[in-house]
Design a protein around this nucleic acid. Structure first.
Lengths: 351, 351
DNA sequence: TGTTAGCACTCAAGCAAATAGAGTGCTAAC
DNA sequence: GTTAGCACTCTATTTGCTTGAGTGCTAACA
């Protein structure tokens, strides 16, 4: 790799090539650059420089007599450079988001849609990941002769309902007593802390109603696990069909499939991005850019993925991401994500 | 339209043509049919018959020297005929569905996926439509110093939670009293029945707490409206890219967009399909088939849509649908939907 | 030594003509 | 009523040719 430092002229040329390619999506030739920039260099000189840049791995030639296009490495350099002097800009996303989206689920869907519409790429967003939920309180209520309702209130003000089948109606007093037992023994525990000894203690105190206790504990477990599940919402998947380099072949099919089958995305966002991200992420504002092969999903090897992390409260965070062609408008995307982050921040802090 | 009755030979030929076309997706010629069927007729004879069938509007010739493909009218005849002597077949869908899918939302998503995987077409399913929900009971509970939890139990065993912001903690007694007042006055009412006079009555009885009552009523309204919202889940959208006649042009793009932007689907399923459906629906088992132009959505004019209505309980129903190319395997699709219906039935009845 | 002009060369894309093949309609014979 | 045969039509594929963009290299220039 010899001297990987590029002199300023090479830098300028590379920059010009990338910018041009971002616009047109076509390989760009020496003559174009010779005119396009104000370097006042002839096409021949540019050609020499381009040959150098190719040798250094920043450019690629699709075939002998075509212009050059940026390699992943080229994009990488461009993006890193760009992020350094990115100015914060704020637009009016907030208005849209501020209209009360009571359930977080709806808010996230809205965000995804907003991003997709604004950028014209595909977007995804995950539900926030809690380390592990603790039980805040539980309450059993009669519904009718065959059903009890268990209201399970989890840390983070999350209420969950579970309907429990029963074979008879319970006396109010019994429920009241049970509620007290359950709450006094289970409060502020998470799944791991509810062990056999505690369970036994509850059953002892519950006396005749130990079957019911079993069902209730199952319900609690379910509720916590449910809330632990990360869900992914996507939007604008069809946008990628607007980019010829992605919509050809069946690569588009695979990509669309990945976006539809959130399963794959969920695993990914959770595990991989957070690890490999360190490497290339620029740190600033917690935005990460994955170019081409840097993304861990096969079907996205021809794409770039830009992700950001949002935080709902201390330690509770989720991921937002934009998926587009490698020649995506990084500038705009990063900008959009940054303003989104600040605005989400305000919304959450206020709540 | 003269004598629209086809003799049995024409019928057999039309049938053979359609079957063949369903398989290959290519225009089918006279020679193919001459061999393919056991009518032992020469290609010339078939040609004559085909010319007749074209004149009658059951077949279409893409261009002079190509074979014939079925017209919408041709498909229509085929489907109607097929539905008459369709045998009920039951397969093992049930196993998949039976694993407790506690929340109906998850069940529906599962169903959509199941259909898409089984048929290789796109599928959609709506949440069930209730006429209007009545309030079964409501219960207020303290969460902490700034929040109350309202558990709103709706007709149909649907629990909803609403967190209400407050400026202080309420005494347990106050809440208890309020619970009683609310329940005694609101039980079994739907949104329309909760009028100003009732609201006033509650506020009178609540005394000092009338601000809280206002918030609670808002929460109830929200809960009921939320549950009234029809949502649509789709699956297998990318399957349609497997059918060349749909994936070409940007017709695929539009179709995919329609499937992604559920909004459009929701309106449609709700309004249009249920009306125009009568016309062509074959009644039996409540399955309706819309071929090509019969569908009310523009982006689906090149597709066929098969829908079925499922019933959760008396008067509470939703729609399931399959979207595929006109040459879809109607036989299989209708069969699959029928078994799905019976199995959903069993699941719901058991609950 | 860096820059530039010029030229030969390469390759993809577009175009037109040629070809092959599938399928038809019609006529005449069975 | 059925069939064989034939001329005809039209699409899809192949082929060769041309065009133009772009390159690399060399030689001349400042």
């Amino acid at each position: 790799m010899e001297t990987d430092r590029l002199d300023s002229r090479k830098m300028a040329i590379l920059n010009a090539i990338i910018r041009n390619y971002l616009e047109t999506g076509e390989p760009v030739g020496s003559r174009t650059i010779s005119k396009f920039t104000d370097l006042s260099l002839s096409s021949a000189t540019i050609r020499n420089e381009m040959a150098d840049l190719e040798e250094l791995g920043y450019l690629v030639q699709p075939h002998t007599s075509a212009g050059r296009i940026p390699s992943d490495k080229g994009y990488r350099l461009y993006v890193d450079k760009m992020m350094e002097d990115k100015v914060e800009e704020v637009n009016n996303m907030k208005e849209v988001l501020d209209q009360k989206a009571d359930r977080i689920e709806n808010l996230l869907k809205k965000v995804a849609k907003l991003l997709a519409v604004n950028t014209n790429y595909a977007s995804m967003i995950t539900t926030p990941k809690y380390r592990s939920r603790k039980l805040k309180f539980i309450q059993l209520t009669n519904v009718d002769d065959e059903h009890l309702l268990a209201i399970i209130f989890l840390e983070g003000n999350i209420p969950k309902n579970k309907v429990i089948d029963t074979d008879h109606r319970y006396e109010e007093e019994v429920l009241l007593k049970l509620n007290i037992v359950l709450n006094s023994l289970l409060q502020d525990l998470d799944l791991e802390e509810i062990n056999m000894s505690i369970i036994q203690k509850i059953k002892d105190q519950a006396g005749d109603e130990s079957t019911l206790v079993g069902k209730v504990l199952d319900a609690i477990g379910e509720a916590i696990r449910e809330e632990d599940n990360i869900e992914v919402y996507t939007s604008g998947a069809t946008n990628i069909l607007n980019y010829p380099e992605l919509s050809s072949d069946d690569s588009a099919k695979k990509l669309l499939y990945t976006l539809e089958d959130k399963q794959e995305l969920a695993e990914l966002v959770d595990n991989k991005l957070s690890n490999t991200g360190e490497e290339h992420g620029t740190g600033k504002g917690d935005i990460q850019v994955y170019i081409g092969n840097e993304t861990p999903i096969d079907s996205m090897k021809n794409c770039s993925v830009v992700t950001a992390t949002y935080e709902i409260e201390e330690g509770v965070y989720g991921k937002v991401g934009i998926i587009g062609p490698k020649r995506m408008d990084y500038d705009k995307v990063v900008g959009t994500l940054k303003t989104l982050m600040t605005q989400l921040d305000e919304i959450f802090k206020k709540k």
